[in-house]
Design a protein around this nucleic acid. Structure first.
Lengths: 164, 164
DNA sequence: TTAAAAGAGTCAAATAAGATGAATCTTTTT
DNA sequence: AAAAAGATTCATCTTATTTGACTCTTTTAA
């Protein structure tokens, strides 16, 4: 059982944006920081924009920022909307092929567990993940909140050393 | 997010066995009833035997039966032991490649949700799934509890009509 | 008004996990 | 001994996911 990297990265992008509330962040910057391809990350971001989590601006000086306050972004919402499928087993779909289906209580049990899973995530917001201290900034190589823009050239060098 | 069919079938096999406490059931019979290949199902059963959920007997007159009472088999246990991986995201493993890892609270949130998921399953036993009524027997085409052995020839005919 | 920055979209390919089944081996009972 | 039944091994097929190149569109700043 796992969630897709797609969803995983979506959550991490939101964390990155939550850590930089004072400016717009470009996809390129995030891609280099996380060391993944820009094209790949683009799809994730595009979806986050479409689903209303992120506000994207085009053109020179554009970039990304959270569309809502971090405290208003629940992890459960993100997972529900971004994860491609929450059908734990085949029979969650419309037509099951299993002979047990008509009387099966397994489906109900699994669905209950799934709801418990999502409910646990609902209790956590992006604000909880980002926190108020500067540790996240430090790890991301960002300035403390309220300082100058990011020195992109340095980030590029960091990315180069791993080569991708 | 999904659990593997492997785990799904493991649970269904246990349900089948739970519905037939009075006799040993062969893998072939279960495979035909669920319309999946014997070889495939074999691996699932072998694992259930190795993990102590099922008691398998070889030789003529052999077959499968539950190794414990249905009320003593919790769904959480089964999922924990049978599902190949419960690492929701990459960073659950030993070495994460994510820059956020040292300060990441996402991992904790996801793990909390996973524990809630498993805890919900812990509250359900195989006995809860099988129930005391005859509905499961009916769907499986089995005799009501305490009657003669299953007419295998009929089951074979049923399986043939779908061809596999 | 034009060039550059940046996001959006399309397409195809590479991976890897999972699912599948054939063939053979081993054990046990009649 | 023979048949029944589970155990093991091996190879292949399938599919979701991951990946990234290439091109298009929008928008801002000079």
């Amino acid at each position: 059982m796992n969630i897709t990297q797609h969803t995983d990265y979506a959550l991490r992008v939101l964390m990155y944006l939550g850590a930089c509330p004072e400016r717009r962040v470009t996809i390129k910057e995030v891609a280099e920081r996380f060391d993944i391809s820009r094209s790949h990350l683009m799809k994730i971001v595009t979806e986050l924009v479409a689903k209303g989590f992120v506000d994207g601006a085009r053109g020179k000086g554009g970039g990304l920022r959270l569309a809502r306050a971090p405290s208003e972004i629940g992890l459960g919402d993100v997972v529900r909307q971004v994860e491609p499928s929450l059908a734990l087993v085949e029979c969650f779909g419309t037509q099951s092929h299993c002979v047990l289906d008509p009387v099966c209580r397994l489906k109900g049990a699994l669905d209950g567990a799934l709801q418990a899973f999502l409910a646990a995530l609902d209790r956590v917001s992006l604000a909880d993940l980002v926190g108020s201290d500067a540790r996240l900034h430090a790890v991301l190589g960002l300035e403390p909140p309220g300082r100058q823009p990011l020195p992109v050239t340095i980030l590029r060098q960091v990315a180069r050393t791993k080569g991708r």
